[in-house]
Computed example of a mutant assay.
Amino acid sequence: MRAAAFLRFLSTALPVAALALVAGCQSAAPPAPSRNTTALSTMERVALGANACWFKSGDAAFKPYRLAPELNSFSGRPRILIVKRNSPESRPLAVIQAEGHPARLQAFGPLFNEPLGTRMASDVKRFAAGGTGCH
């Protein structure tokens, strides 16, 4: 009789123990997806952030300018340009581009030498890293 009771105990205890063991091996939440660090994905984040925070927000500092994204680049250097609002065909006042994987950012142009340039550089770094929100 004792052997039958022991077998019943094992038949219920083993599945419970196996479930506990499997549950213990799993993490509570799935791992967060890693941020894509290609040049294109980095410049997409920068373009979205710049457009939202500098232009769509109505920021007076950017009123004289417009955003000209050139993300579809066959050179492997997607970029965005900041140009004069009323003269978009003129030479860019700022160029922000990336290349490689992981992306290496470059930002240059006369607008970066103006007081606004410090803020732009800080924003670009934040946008590239995936930061959201405007300052």
Score class of each variant (00 low, 15 high):
2 R>T: 10
3 A>M: 08
6 F>N: 12
7 L>M: 07
9 F>G: 08
9 F>M: 07
10 L>W: 11
12 T>F: 10
14 L>V: 15
14 L>W: 12
14 L>D: 03
15 P>S: 00
16 V>Y: 08
16 V>K: 09
17 A>K: 06
18 A>P: 08
21 L>I: 12
22 V>T: 11
26 Q>D: 09
28 A>I: 11
30 P>Q: 10
35 R>Q: 06
38 T>Q: 01
39 A>L: 00
43 M>A: 01
48 L>A: 14
48 L>T: 13
50 A>H: 03
50 A>C: 05
54 W>R: 03
60 A>Y: 11
62 F>Y: 01
63 K>L: 11
68 A>M: 11
69 P>H: 00
77 R>H: 07
78 P>G: 06
81 L>Q: 10
87 S>P: 12
87 S>H: 15
89 E>W: 11
91 R>P: 10
91 R>C: 11
92 P>Q: 02
94 A>P: 01
94 A>S: 01
95 V>Q: 04
96 I>K: 03
98 A>H: 00
98 A>Y: 01
98 A>R: 03
102 P>Y: 00
105 L>W: 01
112 F>A: 09
114 E>S: 15
117 G>C: 00
118 T>C: 06
118 T>K: 09
119 R>N: 12
123 D>V: 09
123 D>N: 13
125 K>P: 05
125 K>E: 15
126 R>E: 05
126 R>V: 06
128 A>G: 00
129 A>R: 08
130 G>A: 00
131 G>A: 08
134 C>G: 07
134 C>Y: 07
